[in-house]
Each structure stands twice: as C-alpha cells, then as structure tokens.
Design a protein around this nucleic acid. Structure first.
Lengths: 239, 239
DNA sequence: CTTAAAGTGTGAGCAGTGCTCTCGTTCAAG
DNA sequence: CTTGAACGAGAGCACTGCTCACACTTTAAG
C-alpha cells in the first residue's frame, strides 16, 4: 500500500514541479540555448547549487521539458481528433495535421526543442520513444479505422512499393502491435504513405517555424491545408 | 580598376579564412552549441580578443558558417544533377534528392546548423535567402525542363489546388523569374507538388539525422528511395 | 620623407555560465 | 532520542562571450 508521503516528500515533489514550470517559462522566452539553471534558481529565490538536488544537470532538466513537450503536442492532437466523429476519417486526419501545426505555432521553442536539431548530445531515446510515437500513432489509427470501415482507397501503386520498403513497413506494424493497434490487414502501400505523410507534416511545420518559408510563401496556412489534403489523398483517405 | 591588395589586406583575408576553417572543424566535432571563439583562437595561436578584429561576434562567425553550408549542399546537389543527361529528368530528380541526404549524412552538424532549429536569434534572412534557394531551384528547374520537353505528366488534380494555393504558387513563379527560370508555362499543380516534395525531402533527412527514425525504420536508405520515387511521381516526373 | 591615421595583437577584466564541494541545519526513520 | 539521509547556503573552479586601454605596425596623405 502507498504510505502517506512525508512533508519533505511533498515539498520535494512540489519544488521539482515548480522548477520545471519556471524552466519552461524561460524556454519559451529565451529559447533552449538561453535556458540557465542559475536564472531559474534566482527566479525561485534559491541558490543555484540547491537546484542540483532536484535535477542532476541542465541536460536532465531539458530532457524533462522534452518529455513534457512530446506529451503536450500529443495531447492536443489526440483531443482535436477526438472532437470529430469516428467515421469522419478525412476530418480526423485534417484535425490531426492542423493540431500539430497550431501547437507548433503556439509553442515554437518547445517545438524546436523536440523537432529541431538535438541540442543535448544524443540523449537516450529510451524514455522519449513512447511519447514521441503518440502523434504518428494517431495518424496510423485513423488509417486503420478507415480500412476497417472499408473506406480506405488504394494508395497509388506507381511507383510500386519495393519488397525492401515493404519489409520496413512490416517493422512498424510489429512495433505498434502492443498498442491495441492491429495494422496487419492494412495494405503496406497505405502505411508507407503514412510514413511519408508524417515526415512531410513535420517538414512543413518546421520550415514555417524555422523561417525557411519566409519570402517564399506568404499564406502558410493555405499551403499547409493543400499539403495535408494532398497527403490524405495519397494515404487513401477520401472522406 | 582593382588596385593591388596590400600585404595587410592579404593577411587579413587569409586569417579570416583560417578562422572560419578552424571554426568549421570545431563545429563538425562539437556541434554549434560547442563552438567556442576562445577555443578557435587558442587553436590558431592567437589571443581571443584578436579574433574580434575579424568577426565582430560569435553569431557573425556562425552566420558565415551558415552561408558556407548552404552553398556547400547546393554545390553538391547541382554537381550530382549535372552528372546526368539533361533529358533524364527522373534520374536528375533522384540524384538531387540523394545528394541532399548524402550531404546531410556526411555533414550532420552543418546540416543541423542550417535546417535545424535556428540557434542564433532570428538572423537576417537577407543574406541567406539566395544560397538557401539554390536547392529548391534545382528541383524546379528539373520540372521546368521536363515540361518544356513535353514529358511532364499531370499532377493529380484530386484534391484540386485551391485558388488561394494557386496564388501562393504564383508568388514563387514571380520570385524565380530573375534566375533565368521561367515557370510561367508550368501547371500550377505541378509546382505546388514541388513545394510539397521539397519540404518532404527536408523532413525525411531531418528525421533521420535527428534520430526520430531510430527504432522505427531500420533501413533509412530504402525508405528514402521510396519516398523520393513517390514524390517524383506526384510532381509529374515519370522518366 | 614625415606624420597622422587606421589597423592589429595583447592582456586584463567584467559578467555570466554549469557544476562541485564543504559545511551547518533540518527532517524522518529506527 | 539518536543517527543518517536529505537539504540549502556559499565559496570556488574552469569556462564562456565580449570590452577596453594600451602598445605596435602598416598604410596613406601631406
């Protein structure tokens, strides 16, 4: 049974959270580069060395923020999708794509933290793998639902999916098996298209947030919508 | 007429270059975050303050490296494309895509510098715009060549390109007009597909380099090839 | 040729960083 | 009540980007 937490334990938990909150605030304003442990400690009225009792290093604190960011964007995407009718596959797809973009626009620094260049020297992907997978899993689930409903159109078979590429898709099918997501009946070409769509979605949002569309595309929203529609079509979602 | 450069001017030019070379070496090994002016100066046997005679700040030095990186990847892509027959449109397309990926794999830190999260507080895109445009211009040129040769297939018109999206594409057509690249006759749907392809290409390579495909896709080469083929098809390149 | 100005390297110094260590203090479990 | 673990404070280390006053050299103008 869980014994009642002592006062010290409660204080520790609270401070750990407060540190993260303040760190996130600084991340949003100064960026990952400008996140300073000393400044966080200063803002919280403690001395910098005390902070190390809670996070053993700056990288650990950043990792905590990364985990939160993955979960935050996933949360937003999942909620946006859940607002649509289960049978409205195209609507769910578009909602998911838009949610990713909107979360990025609202939280550019956190987006950059997880989808930009890895600032921490290659961190262990062990802990981040599961939260990071949530968004692509949403996309896959929509496709699977559509297929189960018999509404999934064939993905274009020209150019054909090579056997080697099909094997790669099989790996994904296996990887999500323990997420009550059975992709085995879904044609491989459609699943490969989801991979393309996911990287594409990420590419579009990143380009916009990182300024690569500045002076090239004026109305990013419009171009983004067109891309997501095109991708939905490619994936086999027609309605 | 250009007067002969004085000894001082030549020395300055050489040192400016040497600093950049050493900075690039450190960038490759320690990453952008770990690039230290003092370390560069130390390696060159000068005192750190002397370095400021050549680059007024760390950001300026990074900007120089960014410019070089844009030009380096563009160089590699242009050369790879030039190796193919002009009429081999699909081959040129694939060569361009592969060159981007290979440059990224060979120079991950420089890739991250230009395509990752902007580490410098939004730098002026004025100077970087032209070099940054070289790669997408290569892609556009292939499509234009293909169209001029009457070999460009229709881009899928479902879902249709919205008028607003078509207007965005028009902006691009105008923007490249002074690069002896006349895109006006090329159908807007094909050009929109190039935009999608370009962001997609970037998304794939970034995902691979930044570790987002780790544990998801085993053979990235295979998946990348499939994606580029699919994109070529989408753009209208069949052979 | 002389001289004033501009360019260049030096070293000290400032403010800031991540992180470590020691030292009392406080809390909680035995 | 005692003992050991957790904790906060403060000093300190090695490092960073950057500035400044100072000498020295090269350049160009008179």
């Amino acid at each position: 049974m869980p014994k009642a937490p002592t006062a010290r334990e409660r204080a520790r938990e609270e401070l750990t959270r407060e540190i993260k909150v303040e760190a996130r605030r600084q991340l949003a304003t100064h960026g990952a580069e400008g996140l300073s442990l000393r400044a966080v400690a200063r803002e919280l009225g403690m001395v910098s060395s005390a902070l190390y009792r809670y996070y053993p290093s700056r990288d650990e604190l950043l990792t905590a923020l990364i985990l939160d960011a993955y979960n935050a964007v996933a949360e937003q995407v999942e909620q946006a999708v859940a607002k649509r009718r289960t049978g409205d596959f195209l609507g769910r797809w578009r909602a998911a794509c838009n949610a990713v973009r909107e979360w990025g626009l609202a939280n550019p620094q956190e987006y950059a933290l997880i989808y930009g260049s890895p600032v921490v020297g290659y961190r262990a992907p062990r802990d981040t793998a599961a939260p990071a997978a949530r968004v692509p899993v949403v996309l896959l689930r929509i496709v699977q639902d559509s297929h189960q409903a018999g509404k999934l159109a064939d993905a274009p078979n020209r150019p054909a999916l090579s056997p080697a590429a099909a094997r790669q898709v099989d790996l994904i099918v296996e990887a999500v098996e323990d997420l009550d997501l059975d992709l085995r009946p879904v044609p491989r070409a459609n699943l490969a298209a989801v991979v393309i769509a996911w990287t594409q979605l990420y590419g579009m949002v990143s380009f916009e947030l990182f300024g690569h569309l500045e002076g090239v595309i004026d109305d990013k929203q419009v171009m983004f919508e067109h891309a997501t529609n095109q991708l939905a079509h490619l994936v086999g979602l027609r309605r």
